[in-house]
Design a protein around this nucleic acid. Structure first.
Lengths: 259, 259
DNA sequence: CGCTATTTTGAGATGGCTCAAGCTATGTGG
DNA sequence: CCACATAGCTTGAGCCATCTCAAAATAGCG
């Protein structure tokens, strides 16, 4: 189960937050780590349970879900290999703020929070790197908060797809494939809308050739146009042809006016 | 203008992120600081301008505004004395992600980002404290993101008021006063709605005796009931009397059903 | 090759936005 | 000290972007 130290060191080395550490330091970090593997669909930790470990993802992808007792579930973001997971420190409230679910087979390393605190004391570089990583995330979340508060659904979903393409996507011959299974429902959970609205938007965009959507799968064909939609630059074409009745009123996603 | 070192040290000492530092360390931090004062309405820094300093607020209160080119402005949060302001590190993008505006007379200390990086290297405690502070903020923002995505306006505004009372409020004989000038517009900017809707909600709550709202001022009279509203526990009373026509249809904020 | 989860699409309902007045504190200059 | 100006607030009316519900279509999967 637990790979030998050499293997663990190489996993540790792939985690951004340990950049800048020497080989000896990395070995010390590796010795303190717990190794975990999980299959798709399993949880690394659950919202509300006590924080015991801080994790770093070494392989695979994980999604972070937050739910309110009375409310729906929100998909905060996807985490890729190399990123930290979970609260950096467990200062205040000692329970996880969200649930981390593997969306494919994953390798993760975990450190007891006390141990991680000691490691950060011993190797301040870790704390500095973590600070940098958190700062970036904070910025992104602020930007998304701002969008959610001011932009309408169409823009948010478009922007969400672009962000996903950047974070968990890869490019092939001009198209950007999103490299995690992504249902309409999940996209809705990310952008604060309903799966029905997402479905309608994707259908409309597909008719216009902007995206190629399938079951749990979205590919961006024309990133420029999607970006235009995201920025509410209503660069919509007249949308003459359509899958449904021609001459009928314009399709659902057309004919926007600025807010 | 610049107070003597002794005064600056005492200011530095009041900033949470420097907790745990010895007197000598504090002096070193203080020597590296720029001192600034600003009157209400003035900006500490502007969104989009290059990050030169990381600030800590020593006295007063500041609001953080983020705006999208095409969108409205969003009020991210209020900052109180003792908190850090601005990005902890300026790793990636070297410009401020939001604008910081003083809402009353403020004292702030600033450190050049390079200098702060050195201070953190020299005194890792600073980085650890900053990490803890950022983690708390991250949690709060995630919670708000979740709310914005799933809760309806009434709950969000109620929750927003409660949060404000905790962060920039003080208690007097059972009531919680929010201790910054807070217009309907600003409350709307914080909760992702329009000033009209906020006004209607406050009017309804005032009729029910839950809050006491005035010009740029809100006081929470019955925190329990506001919390109940925030959690969508529709513990609404029959709302018989009303300022407007009696026997008329129930007032705007009544008669909610669960989502 | 049926079963189940996902997706699509239609139709209808509505929460909250927008616009348009009018109102009321607060400050200000005469 | 008062009339006016201004910024903030309230309230009504109408509308529409988006949600909800319902049901059919589709696609993997065992």
């Amino acid at each position: 189960m637990m790979p030998d130290l050499f293997r663990v060191v190489s996993l540790v080395r792939s985690v951004r937050v340990f950049r800048g550490l020497g080989d000896g330091d990395l070995a010390a970090v590796a010795r303190a780590a717990h190794y975990r593997e999980l299959d798709a669909g399993l949880c690394l930790f659950h919202q509300g349970t006590q924080v015991d470990c801080i994790y770093a993802l070494c392989h695979g992808s994980v999604k972070l879900l937050q739910s309110k007792p009375k409310g729906h579930e929100v998909l905060l973001r996807f985490v890729n290999a190399g990123q930290l997971l979970g609260p950096m420190t467990a200062v205040d409230r000692p329970d996880y703020a969200f649930t981390a679910v593997a969306v494919r087979w994953c390798q993760a390393l975990g450190w007891n929070i006390g141990v991680m605190a000691e490691l950060m004391e011993t190797y301040p570089r870790i704390a500095l790197n973590a600070l940098a990583e958190l700062t970036v995330r904070m910025r992104e979340l602020q930007a998304r908060y701002c969008e959610l508060a001011t932009e309408r659904v169409e823009q948010r979903v478009a922007q969400g797809l672009i962000r996903l393409a950047d974070q968990v996507g890869y490019q092939t011959d001009g198209a950007f494939l999103i490299d995690v299974p992504l249902s309409r429902h999940e996209l809705a959970q990310m952008t604060g809308t309903s799966l029905y609205t997402v479905s309608r938007l994707l259908s409309a965009w597909e008719r216009e050739g902007v995206v190629d959507a399938g079951r749990q799968r979205v590919a961006i064909l024309e990133r420029q146009r999607l970006a235009a939609i995201a920025e509410a630059r209503a660069e919509r074409r007249s949308a003459t042809l359509s899958g449904s009745g021609n001459g009928a009123p314009l399709s659902w996603a057309d004919e926007r006016r600025t807010r």
